[in-house]
Simulated assay, not measured.
Amino acid sequence: MLFGDVPLLRRPQAARDAGFDAVEFWWPFASAVPTDTEVRAFVRAVEDAGVHLAALNLAGGDMTAGERGLASHPDRRNIFRDNADIAFGIAEQLKVEALNTLYGNRIPDVSAAAQDEMATENLSYVARMAERIGAVILIEPLSGVDAYPLRTAAQAVSVIDRVGAPAMRLLADLYHLSVNGDDIPAVIAAFGDRIGHVQIADDPGRAEPGTGTINFDGLFSRLFARGYRGHVSLEYRPTASDPFGWLPRERRGGSPWDQSAARSNS
């Protein structure tokens, strides 16, 4: 989102040049099952830039058409598994800590129960893969897509509980939670020990902090108090000529809690 005008394989270096030492990516390929050549080029771009790939999305389907994940689609089970094999191959090479697995939209001609059963099976599958490499699977509530069934933190946590795998965590995107009406301080109080990753954008507008009404410093303090020490990813649509002008350069690297440093979503 932050380097949309930069060719994808140059984005890790662009993040490094902007002062970040870690990045995350949505699924970085046009296909759920890219070629070995494409995968090697992506891994090399991250390694050459000297940044850490902290989080990676599994394939989300046709995101531009509104799709949000494959996990719950019964007719895409094989594609989901093939995609997971590639994603975890990347994760093992680059020591990725978290893989975001979007749940999948409701399909009109398939019962919710059948979709939930498929999602449970698929999430159990990737959770076992995550355990083997010391990573976690993230489950994310989303806004903006009516067919996506996970809107609140509690709904996402209910999926985590249903699967019952120790490697599963809540992805707390503070923008999505705010848009969907979640009480974010209450979410942190209730689920702070189950949050595996944090993303930020201001609400309204999904732009950089300071353009909306979210009190990020207050929420970061609550997260810290609940024991969160993971990354904070910048996932917004910048409105200023300098997309990071609000964030001093010295706060962009190192430990995310030493100086409230953040991570860039490339």
Results as ranks from 00 to 15, higher is better:
residue 219 L to V: 09
residue 132 R to P: 00
residue 167 A to Q: 06
residue 92 E to R: 15
residue 161 D to N: 11
residue 72 S to M: 09
residue 231 H to I: 09
residue 245 G to A: 15
residue 160 I to F: 03
residue 32 A to S: 05
residue 144 G to Q: 05
residue 126 V to K: 08
residue 245 G to N: 09
residue 246 W to N: 01
residue 137 I to K: 03
residue 229 R to T: 01
residue 246 W to H: 15
residue 4 G to M: 00
residue 70 L to K: 07
residue 98 A to T: 09
residue 57 N to C: 14
residue 48 D to S: 15
residue 240 A to C: 10
residue 196 G to P: 02
residue 177 L to G: 00
residue 99 L to G: 01
residue 74 P to L: 12
residue 109 D to I: 08
residue 245 G to D: 13
residue 58 L to T: 15
residue 22 A to Y: 00
residue 158 S to L: 03
residue 258 D to F: 07
residue 112 A to S: 15
residue 11 R to E: 07
residue 266 S to M: 13
residue 266 S to C: 11
residue 46 V to D: 05
residue 71 A to P: 04
residue 107 I to T: 10
residue 264 S to Q: 06
residue 8 L to T: 04
residue 258 D to P: 07
residue 88 F to V: 08
residue 169 R to H: 03
residue 212 G to P: 05
residue 78 N to Y: 01
residue 98 A to K: 13
residue 8 L to Q: 00
residue 85 D to Y: 02
residue 7 P to N: 10
residue 138 L to M: 13
residue 87 A to Q: 03
residue 25 F to W: 13
residue 47 E to N: 12
residue 182 D to R: 04
residue 106 R to F: 02
residue 61 G to M: 01
residue 66 G to N: 06
residue 78 N to P: 01
residue 8 L to S: 06
residue 73 H to C: 11
residue 55 A to K: 01
residue 34 P to Q: 06
residue 40 R to A: 14
residue 54 A to H: 05
residue 224 F to N: 10
residue 255 S to I: 05
residue 53 L to S: 03
residue 167 A to D: 10
residue 94 L to H: 00
residue 211 T to P: 08
residue 3 F to A: 02
residue 43 V to S: 00
residue 39 V to W: 04
residue 236 Y to Q: 10
residue 232 V to Y: 12
residue 241 S to M: 11
residue 112 A to E: 12
residue 12 P to K: 09
residue 71 A to Q: 04
residue 178 S to M: 09
residue 201 A to Y: 13
residue 92 E to F: 05
residue 35 T to V: 03
residue 95 K to T: 13
residue 240 A to H: 14
residue 99 L to I: 14
residue 159 V to Q: 01
residue 30 A to G: 15
residue 20 F to G: 02
residue 1 M to N: 14
residue 161 D to K: 11
